[in-house]
Design a protein around this nucleic acid. Structure first.
Lengths: 257, 257
DNA sequence: CAGTGGTCTAGACCACATG
DNA sequence: ATGTGGTCTAGACCACTGG
């Protein structure tokens, strides 16, 4: 940080009345409350960097350990991201994504404000994962196309997808996909003009290092995980997707039809 | 604990070679690994109490702070539950519950091993919550039946449900429900022999104090939350349910039909 | 009452990213 | 070289639970 570096106004206020020492509520929770408000009220903007832990600890009149406890919980809730050696940054407060069923996945984001884009992180071939073997009903010696994509809203990552597809069915995957990064274009080019959603499973987990990096989360942050299956009209299974979502930023919506 | 209280065998082993001081992996993560294995391998049985934090810290040759870090993560994963003033207990490692759609909720647990039971925690009347007002399409001045139920597998809590139903539609709710604690029996008694699932929304969150207590979780543990809606054949909305699940213990499964 | 987990302090060293 | 977050120590006091 620069030489004198003035405190943000929201922090000055906190600095004056740091916390209530004999309150019912633990000190770290009071600090959590204040930071939480500052983040949700917009006193701190998304992407903005917070003062360092040392400075914050001094402002609130506590040890770094106590301060870090508050920070850790805000990270778990997806409001903050810590970058080692760099600083702590405000994430965007959770918007709700209505990821429906019955409709194609791309349409799921229609109701979202802002521009949704997709970044292709990796495209390789490999052996299928254990889940994919079962989901796609292929032998473990088969080859799959492994496609990792990151979905962004206004250049902000909100969803990480790792897809596995039977390589045998899509000999020209890379070529077609390169054109406009569209999966359905690949399907169409291989004689599958329509495909339909077969099943989705939702569970919870914790962000691995790479997931955290791509999603701008602190490692080991809780996340929502999805397993999805698509099949062709003839019933053959053509796509298996593992999804990873920041826990607070998504609301998955399922309708009977 | 009793006077001399011998260490469990799995701990003795750890005690001898506590951790690798100059390893890549952080000390607390190495401790996490050991405890994790002990819990998943069955070296510690579900419901069993661990030695106190002080004892564990000594065994692993670390401070309580470091040990507690490992414990906290195991709590987040639903493997441990800390009870203040009492001790730390092993939870049952996560089983997967296939909570389907299209079928009635009770059937969702059919595939589960062990005996599923339901405990009625509370049954009162009150004003509808904000979510319920929208979900049930009732005015905020209306009255709802507020029903809290805990679902157990072999007397182990796996799912907490808070239901809201328009009181107007079910004048004899309490009487009928008292007979065999069945919701569908109540519906039937009020002229609704059939009802169908309308929608489910899934999101994440963190266990409140009461939720944690009922589900045998440590407070602020990450959980899966569901919002479900049921309606009668004529389309009127008759039930709104908020569900809370231990993050690791559930896999929600959604099919198109 | 004694033992437990929950909280907090005041230091310290490290790996990492940036200029 | 500097400042950052990540880790760890060695104490301490508290509120709670159970016998």
């Amino acid at each position: 940080m620069s030489e004198i570096d003035p405190l943000p106004t929201w922090l000055e206020h906190a600095s004056a009345n740091p916390y209530l020492p004999k309150s019912e509520r633990a000190i770290w929770l009071q600090i959590y409350d204040r930071l939480n408000s500052a983040l949700r009220d917009g006193a701190v903007n998304a992407g903005e960097r917070l003062p360092s832990e040392t400075v914050l600890a001094q402002c609130f009149g506590v040890t770094r350990v106590t301060l870090r406890r508050a920070l850790r919980h805000l990270q778990n809730e997806g409001l903050l991201e810590a970058r080692k050696g760099v600083g702590i940054f405000a994430r965007r407060p959770g918007m709700v994504y209505q990821v429906g069923t019955g409709k194609r996945f791309a349409e799921s984001f229609d109701s979202v404000e802002g521009r949704m884009t997709t970044r292709t992180v990796a495209l390789t071939k490999s052996r299928p994962s254990a889940d994919a073997i079962e989901a796609l009903a292929i032998p473990e010696t088969a080859e799959v196309i492994l496609l990792t994509r990151l979905h962004l809203q206004d250049s902000y990552p909100v969803y990480l997808a790792v897809k596995e597809l039977p390589a045998e069915l899509f000999p020209n995957f890379a070529e077609v996909y390169a054109l406009d990064h569209s999966i359905s274009a690949v399907f169409k080019a291989h004689g599958i003009p329509k495909f339909s959603w077969a099943e989705t499973r939702v569970s919870g987990g914790f962000a691995e290092a790479e997931e955290a990096d791509l999603l701008h989360l602190t490692p080991r942050t809780p996340v929502l995980r999805t397993l999805s299956f698509n099949h062709a009209p003839n019933g053959s299974r053509i796509e298996f997707t593992r999804g990873c979502w920041p826990l607070d930023q998504v609301q998955l919506r399922f309708l009977p039809r």
